[in-house]
Design a protein around this nucleic acid. Structure first.
Length: 181
DNA sequence: GGGACGATTGAA
DNA sequence: TCAATCGTCCCA
């Protein structure tokens, strides 16, 4: 007999992330990321802010410069993890989306109680060891579907001025409206 | 081998 | 406003 509390907990997997980054980024809002820490404890945090990076045309996307050792994971099918170091000190956590050969990912920028992509990876003990792993295989990190529809806002992505007028302004950052959580 | 640069953060 | 800090990528 299935335990009642498990009934509505749907773990997001490769199927969910086979959608495009642009479609799935706002759908991630309100879902919960679970982390089993080194000390064995498990905590969950609501995902409150994300950004979509879409394909080779997107000049803000690392993969716009083609497939390199760093970006090759983005070319895989949805569900893989892309972690990289920026400014020599902050780990960025992304979930690859879309079909094989289409370099897309969703960057986690905020969770409940923690704003900022570098801060949240530090809090969640995320580093390069997760790079290239697949969400379906992980036992100590997973994401559960949002229980309800969430109202959200959209605006330009942060820190991508190098991408030029169009790509730096396109509203592909999404965040939960504050009253929602 | 060298140099420029970055999907950020925290302190001045 | 600005330094920290180092992996990645490009050029030679």
């Amino acid at each position: 007999m299935m335990h009642m509390s498990k009934q509505n907990q749907i773990r997001l997997d490769a199927e969910f992330f086979s959608g495009t980054a642009l479609d799935m980024a706002p759908k991630l809002l309100g879902s919960k990321i679970f982390r089993r820490f080194l000390d064995g404890s498990v905590k969950s945090f609501t995902i409150t802010e994300v950004e979509a990076y879409m394909g080779e045309n997107d000049k803000a996307n690392h993969a716009s410069k083609g497939k390199t050792p760093r970006t090759q994971v983005m070319f895989k099918a949805g569900g893989y993890i892309y972690v990289y170091l920026v400014y020599g000190m902050h780990w960025m956590f992304n979930i690859v989306t879309g079909g094989e050969g289409s370099p897309e990912a969703i960057l986690l920028r905020g969770v409940s109680g923690c704003s900022g992509p570098g801060r949240l990876t530090r809090m969640l003990e995320i580093d390069s060891r997760l790079n290239g792993m697949h969400l379906n295989d992980l036992k100590d990190l997973w994401i559960e579907k949002a229980q309800q529809n969430i109202s959200y806002s959209a605006g330009p992505r942060i820190g991508v001025d190098y991408a030029g007028e169009y790509w730096s302004k396109i509203p592909w950052r999404f965040w939960i409206n504050p009253q929602e959580y």
